[in-house]
Design a protein around this nucleic acid. Sequence first.
RNA 1: GGACCUUUAGCUCAGUUGGUUAGAGCGUUUCCUUGACAUGGAAAAGGUCACAGGUUCGAGUCCUGUAAGGUCCACCA
Length: 889
Amino acid sequence: MPEISKSYEPRDVEEKWYAAWLAAGAFAGRTDDAREPYCIVIPPPNVTGVLTMGHVLNNTIQDVLARRARLEGKSVLWLPGTDHAGIATQTVVERTLKKAGEIKHRDDLGREKFLERVWEWKEKHGGIIIQQLKKLGCSCDWDRERFTMDADYSRCVQKVFVELYKKDLIYRGKRMVNWCPASLTALSDEEVVMKEQRGTLCYFKVEVAEAPGTFLTIATTRPETIPGDTAVAVNPKDPRYAHLIGQHVLRPLPAELPREQKLIPIIGDAHVDFEFGTGVLKVTPAHDKTDFDIGQRHQLAQIEVIAAAGKMNDAAGADLRGLDRFKARKIAVEKLTELGALVKEEPYTNNVGYSERADVPIEPRLSEQWFLKYPSVEKSRAVVASGEMQFHPERWAKVYDHWMGNIQDWCISRQLWWGHRIPVWYRGQEIYCGLEAPTGEGWTQDPDVLDTWFSSWLWPFATMGWPEQTATLKKFYPTTTLVTGPDIIFFWVARMIMAGYEFMGAMPFKHVYFTGIIRDQQGRKMSKSLGNSPDPLDLIATYGADGLRFGIISLAPSGQDIRFQEDRIESGKNFCNKLWNAARFRQMSGEAGDNSTLAAIVARLDAARFDADDHAILDRLLTVTREVDRCFVEFEFSAAVQALYGFFWNDFCDWYVEVSKSKLQSSDLKAGCLALQDLVLRQTLLLLHPFIPFITEELWSLLGYSVPGKFIEHARLENASQLASSSHLNGIALDRAAVAQVEKLKAVTSLARALKAEHNVASRRDVRFLVTAGDAEWAVLAANLASLARMTGAAEIARQDSVANAPAAVTPLGTFYLDLTGTVDPVAEKIRLTKELDALTKHIAGTEARLANKAFTDKAPPAVIAGAQKQLAEQKAKHAELARLLKAL
RNA sequence: GGACCUUUAGCUCAGUUGGUUAGAGCGUUUCCUUGACAUGGAAAAGGUCACAGGUUCGAGUCCUGUAAGGUCCACCA
């Protein structure tokens, strides 16, 4: 067996094992066995993307789940892939080509040529994030990697479109949509983010045509759309204006129009809030969603004044024509001023919709688009509400339910080139929808493509070969767990559920785990533009993939946003080093580990020869195993990692390994002690493996725990019960008294060390402790004298009947005196003891008061009362001893 | 406007159905290279659990309200 080096160097180990796992086919999802399936489909990252901290968190969790499931003996498939990410990718490629000076606009290339370039780009950059996921250790079945624009995947998308079209769930209509003037495409409501914006509220007056000299004042944030106004609306219950309904006003712009063309009606509509502004609303049905609705109710004309790219068109009039919409806003105000129509301007803050991708204000615009009436809504809503599909944390179920209850039709067409082309053809008034182009002359296909999410929503089954009833679908659908961020609960999760019911007749996953959002120290979301995100690959280079994984999991509490702290990643690395060195110590202490199964090792352990420390560490091992178990059931990964950290560092290394150092001197105790170390190390490696797969695999191998030629990942050398229930450990009769005894020894050690530290001899290893103790207490101490002396750095620990004039500590196993004749400062010692005594006196008073309270003794459960009584007795005993020491000074 | 979340040590967070003297990591202070590990060991300092009421023998934990911060949804020109 090769010698374990002094410190852990992740790089070589990681590369070696990843290659070995791939070579062994350890990640292959198998359909040819009878084991219980466990399946995760990856949230497909954008094909042109690079790994972010969000990906690290999300994919680490998925890998943890997949690897744990493998260790539990399940048949695991983690299905990977990437998303074509319509707008994002098209924008990136177009921008790059522009920068290179190749084109001014994608039209310069034309659709076919441009798409060729996007595919080239995809081939060149598409694999980057996949390689990065491998560096992180992700155990995906890479042979099954899918892409949302693969030929057969595209086929699924088209099939789904055609089916929904035939069910009349997909329809085309001229509607008010969110138009992105930068990308020149429609967007769904989910792709629009509201941003607060400081602007101006502009008040202008219009004359009532039927009553010259009477003016109405209107407040607006968008004076540039005045040429598109086709009415003025007031609330019919508003006493100020109700009598004017049915009359007309003269719209001030475009100024050049003749009077009769400026006349627009005054209408009454309940939507108008008479508290707001002046209570008079200008109605622009072609450029505002609410106004569009009002226009529908009153059959108003729609005058479009802003063209697709956000520039004013001819209808906007001579003054505004050709101007950018924001420039036009200023000019419109100037024009109103010239006309004497401007009343005032005041600063105003309101919310404006922005295109999430292009980050420009969207323009509500009338256009011909395809819409989807969501299918299987009720089932999808009910499955979450009933708890049949579980959200973790549960509260996201409410958010989901609220959205499902207020669901709006989905605008699925996009005026882009990169994406799935809409399978619809036109010839004159004829429309044909089908998988293949219709036969006959003169048909032209709809130029639009589908929203990226219209392909993503099929991900859980389109990746498995649907619509064929493949073995993969049969074995792994519905999948087990989806791990994703709550920010795409509507974009993706909800839609996948609906698609699952509509096309598979079953929910797509049983659990959805929502990770937190990773933020920087100031609480800002990590983003490329802010430059506040560390590069995960740098972190891997510095701390190792295991260190990064351990760190990110440990700082990710379930369901809360995460403040990133690099020192937690560092502590992940340190933990790996600790694990490494504990294994090193084991290796240096004696022959290589036993390579039989854990169950066999346990069977050979001679429980009768366990000492108290053995019982104590087994007790802790059992506890942490069960705790990790619970954490997996409840999706509390950071708690699992913290439990393992505490167990291994404090209970095993700081105590058990330290006390072992004495036992290893004894030929009598050595074998048993090493066997127990092996047991703990094996179990700990198994429990840790899902979180830190590389180092655990390496140590498992270096310690000789492998069955020859196999390793943890694919050997499944030990079956599910190993990990899940620790049933093999349940067979060992743990001695509770021994466990309690070790707790006392730990307390004694700590108090003795503190005593030394307080007297500035912490580092000396030649001090003597004198102990006054009862026979029973001394018996315990005597049995552990060697390790106790080592742990406290004492040359000797000796029993005495009484000790005078020495600093002392009252411990659960007698009073310890520090034998430092001549160096005691009675005054300081007196102050120290008095302080301790005072604190204790207060506690005793508190406990006594509690026990004297009849209400307490009547109503509190007996166990609580007994506990208080026991506590009081202990406090009093300690108090008496302290008082005696003080008196003796 | 509606809903949800958060508020505990200098920082980031735990704290299971209410029950001894509220914990961890990092940071800070002091000491230590003792034969796994200085990526380490030992000890210590540091908290009126946001605030105000209430329920209870007992509240960090349950209820009501308030404040601050955050997220999502809707949106009034």
